[in-house]
Amino acid sequence: MMNTREHLIYMAGQIFRNFASRGEEAAVSATAEHLVLYWDPHMKAQALDILDDPEIDLPEPVRAVFGKLRVAA
């Protein structure tokens, strides 16, 4: 079973994969937009924490999505 952080990373990745046919850039934007609309503030904050945690090996698209989230915040 996943812990909360792993779960958030998984969720973001899953959303991205469902937008992926639009192309990388559009999919990253759509995913970030989705997180803005549906994630609660604490989850968003955790995403930014994950981004800053060097210990975590973040898949590239998820890093891009969380990066966008930071810009939006």
């Binding site: 609309l37 549906y38 994630w39 609660d40 503030p41 604490h42 989850m43």
Partner: peptide, 8 residues
């Protein structure tokens, strides 16, 4: 801000 879903 949106709140938490049940699993969250």
């Amino acid at each position: 801000e949106p709140g938490l879903r049940i699993p969250n």
